[in-house]
Amino acid sequence: MRYAILLMGAPYSDQASHSALRFARALVARGHRLEAVFFYHDGVYNAARLAAPPQDEPHLVDAWAALANEHRVALQVCIAAALRRGLLDEREAVRHGKDGVSVEAPFELTGLGQLVDIGTRCDRLVTFGP
């Protein structure tokens, strides 16, 4: 089946990110197609390029990127929610005159229309909230 995940919890604050990642791995291990993970609300912090958790803790940002690269999962970050929270890719950093970049590929800033699109196109959408 074609799946999508909506993640709305911040990493390391709530279990939602761990739960979503665990579920995502189980999905692909069972041969399902995970088309996209959409990050909304505080879930957008999962895309924070500068996250530096202690070495004995799972690195959630890297884990999402690995999942995306191994299984062609789109990592879509709501642009409106991200910009408000200081999460900018290179293009947005230039546009807003900022020095730093806090979001990089495979995460992509995108509009809420993508959520609507994957939500209706995929067979299943599973939400993980904080």
Partner: peptide, 12 residues
């Protein structure tokens, strides 16, 4: 469970 259900609704 998510396969068997038509849809999943999360309450958090």
């Amino acid at each position: 469970l998510t396969e068997e259900a038509e849809r999943t609704v999360s309450w958090y």
